[in-house]
Computed example of a mutant assay.
Amino acid sequence: MSAQPSLRMLDWALLVLLSVLWGGSFFFSKVALADWPPFTVVLVRVALAALALGLYLRARGRRLPTAAPVWRAFFVMGLLNNILPFSLLFWGQTQIASGLASILNATTPVFAILVTKALAPETEITANRLAGVALGLAGVAVLMGGDALSSTGFAVLPMLACLGATLSYGAAGFYGQRFQAMGIAPATGAFGQLAASSLLMIPVVCLSDRPWTLPLPGPASLAALVALALLSTALAYVIYFRSLSVIGQLNTSMVTLMIPGSAILLGSLVLGERLSANHYAGLALIALGLLAIDGRLWRRLRRR
């Protein structure tokens, strides 16, 4: 049976950075959705990010792959990792609080495990990993408290949409591991799937939103869109694909357990929001979950 690699300090540091970038995406998207509909926000997000990565690759003198199988993989990855989850999450956030959306998004490791076991039964899922997922999800629930449910109540369809997004992320993480075997560098893989997503979203947006009829967004929405594209998408995906190739899908998927905590800490540091007792308790449970997933502390305790 194949085992997931252990995480080094650099791997953990990149996962924490990724959680901050993706944690901020819930805030940025909420601001952008105030002026533009979900499909248009998805298109602008992936198109700007693809443009930024394309310029980066050109400046580095890297040639883009032209083989048909590679671009087929880009289109599948773009569908699973961008179009479906972004559209479902953004639509969900127009109906429910972003805090509740982030809680539902934190179930991605559960779906990643289910997808991996379904498609690769030989993959080893250890007891400490399962315990870590349980602790992490409990920490997310405690961290958010009841505030996340107070905005619009229990809207079933938006919550199912957010859960559908996490299932799509789980499938994307499994599928994306083949990029390493195909010899695709992280930045190239990120650009390819974002470019493919942009091409797929153009007809959807033209038919559904007719963006040329929409009013121009305000400065706050424009700034949020740029940050969403450049920080939470372009930079984040370079880190994401690097993590997939080095530490595997299941380890990488655990970043979703840290995203709500990162969002809370960013709100405290940047916006002056105060942390309450349940925030500290939730962060402690998430930390315990990550330690359990990593497994090194548990192994040391057993040896002693």
Rank of each mutant, 00 (worst) to 15 (best):
T188F: 13
A59G: 15
S2A: 11
F74V: 08
L265F: 07
L43V: 01
V16S: 02
F179T: 04
M159G: 04
A229R: 07
S208A: 12
F111H: 03
L51T: 11
D294Y: 06
V133N: 08
A281F: 05
L207N: 00
L290Y: 11
L157V: 14
G54M: 02
G99S: 06
S276D: 13
F174L: 13
A97V: 02
L297W: 04
L57F: 11
I184D: 06
A68D: 01
F241N: 11
C206L: 15
L291Q: 10
T66Y: 00
L244H: 04
N251E: 05
G173V: 01
R210C: 02
R60D: 03
L275G: 04
I293Y: 07
L79Q: 04
S198A: 15
L33N: 06
A292R: 11
L231W: 08
A112L: 05
L149C: 03
A263N: 11
L84D: 01
T108Q: 00
T233F: 04
T66E: 10
Q95G: 05
W298R: 13
P38A: 14
C162A: 14
L15N: 10
F75W: 11
S268A: 15
A287F: 15
A3V: 09
L51Q: 02
T107S: 11
S208T: 15
S253T: 14
F26V: 07
T126D: 13
L225S: 13
V133R: 05
Q93F: 12
L119S: 04
L216S: 07
M201L: 15
P109N: 09
G192S: 05
I83H: 09
R129T: 06
D11E: 12
A59L: 11
P203E: 10
S98W: 04
L57S: 09
Q95T: 03
S168P: 08
V156K: 03
A234F: 08
W212R: 07
L225K: 02
L57D: 08
L14W: 00
S19M: 09
L266Y: 00
L301F: 08
R242V: 00
H279A: 11
A120S: 15
L57W: 09
G183Q: 05
P260F: 01
G54R: 05
L55V: 14
A101K: 06
L119W: 09
R299M: 07
L55R: 08
I247R: 02
F75A: 14
F174A: 13
A155F: 00
G272P: 06
A13W: 02
C162D: 01
S268R: 05
A73Q: 12
Y237H: 14
M159C: 14
E122Y: 01
L288C: 15
T233R: 07
G54K: 04
G145F: 08
Q93I: 01
T252L: 13
F26D: 06
G282S: 10
R72Q: 13
V16H: 04
G289V: 05
G99Q: 02
